[in-house]
Amino acid sequence: MKMVMCREATRLMSKRLDSPLGIQEKMTLKFHLAMCGACKQCNKQFQLMHEAGRALESQATIPSSDTDDGTDDTP
């Protein structure tokens, strides 16, 4: 198994959100994340950003009970 540094690990955690990783890549990433707290945080944040679109959409699609949210665009 290849040992990688943080920069390469972030490449793998980014790629994983767009395309399945190969077995080697998966192992490499898993191993790095187990050892590196900063990359573990980075991985969580990439995932959070990945969910941001869906979060925005569900905020828009769940009708809000709050009718005056300051976005009233009547002149």
Partner: peptide, 14 residues
């Protein structure tokens, strides 16, 4: 240069 995070850039918990 080694590929490790710079200290100031290390991701922290959100």
């Amino acid at each position: 240069a080694t590929g490790r995070w710079q200290n100031i850039a290390r991701p922290r918990s959100w």
